[in-house]
């Protein structure tokens, strides 16, 4: 009884959040899961239970649905890998450059962070111009900059590329928008390392790169993990950006877009729900180990 009096108020304070999230996250997810086992079509969502048929169709590479979903899955994996890795590296480099006090630090910091403020709709329009792959008189965007500065070999087809890596080009605008945030996280993380620890290492004769590697790096693991989670969840949900870059181009199609078109244009509600559940499963694969890791790490400390 005394114990309840101790933790009871806490539970009570969190309870409203738990209830609304229970409905708006888990309830709705359940609704979607249920729908994914039906042949629901049209707006009245009339359909019968068909078991795993929708999932089977998505996996069947003989049909066009399965082929498209296969391409989409590959695309989203490439996009996630390039976007997450790119943003982490760019963010870290920028943070290291800024770390030891440079003149105009706040200027640089603001410049790096502000793209986050711009809506994806506007970002997509500017970037689809920048990543235009026209040649000759149509040469423009980044490719034109490259050729003007003697870096012509860098010019490429970006998101129009035939190579299967076209989607990687979309990671550029996405990274442009979010690597500043990662930079801020890392910068905070680096500066969070107590000065005396670093100083002690220097006293022991460690050079600056060694200090970074042996002292700062281990302390950055939690920051890296949280940056990773934030980037990964944005990546799997990236929708507006690709939607506004090139509508329905299979080169940059992802499951989120396929779900949108098949549901709201085609009226295939059951199939759309199945794609959503697979997306969610994909997220779970990434996020559950992370949660498990962080809870365990906490217990240890």
């Amino acid at each position: 009884m005394r114990q309840i009096r101790q933790w009871g108020p806490g539970l009570l304070l969190v309870a409203p959040s738990l209830i609304v999230l229970g409905i708006f996250v888990y309830g709705f997810m359940g609704w979607t899961a249920n729908l994914s086992f039906t042949s629901a079509r049209g707006r009245n969502l009339t359909g019968d239970y068909v078991g795993f048929d929708n999932y089977r169709e998505l996996a069947d590479e003989r049909g066009v649905t399965g082929q498209r979903f296969g391409i989409d899955t590959q695309n989203v994996l490439i996009f996630t890998a390039v976007f997450v890795a790119g943003s982490l590296i760019a963010g870290l480099v920028m943070a290291l450059l800024l770390d030891r006090g440079v003149r105009g630090e706040s200027f640089f910091r603001s410049v790096f962070i502000f793209p986050m403020a711009i809506s994806f709709i506007a970002i997509a329009i500017v970037w689809r111009w920048l990543l235009s792959n026209g040649t000759g008189t149509q040469l423009t965007g980044l490719n034109k900059l490259f050729s003007a500065s003697g870096l012509g070999f860098l010019a490429n087809d970006w998101f129009k590329s035939d190579s299967g890596w076209a989607i990687a080009a979309v990671a550029l605008p996405a990274g442009w928008a979010l690597s500043g945030y990662v930079m801020a996280l890392f910068l905070a993380g680096i500066r969070g390392v107590p000065d005396d620890l670093r100083e002690a290492a220097r006293v022991d004769g460690a050079r600056e790169p060694q200090v970074l590697w042996h002292v700062v790096r281990p302390m950055l693991l939690p920051v890296t993990m949280s940056a990773l989670v934030i980037l990964a969840h944005i990546s799997l949900k990236t929708f507006d950006l690709i939607y506004a870059m090139d509508l329905k181009s299979l080169k940059i199609d992802t499951p989120a877009l396929f779900m949108w078109f098949t549901t709201f244009e085609g009226g295939f509600y059951g199939r759309g729900a199945a794609i959503a559940m697979l997306l969610l499963a994909g997220v779970a694969v990434v996020i559950i180990p992370y949660i498990w890791y962080s809870v365990r790490a906490e217990r240890r400390s």
């Binding site: 066009v64 649905t65 498209r68 181009s249 299979l250 078109f261 085609g266």
Partner: peptide, 12 residues
């Protein structure tokens, strides 16, 4: 519905 399926097929 058919039109959306044609989109997928045409993309391929």
């Amino acid at each position: 519905a058919w039109n959306a399926e044609i989109d997928t097929a045409l993309g391929l």
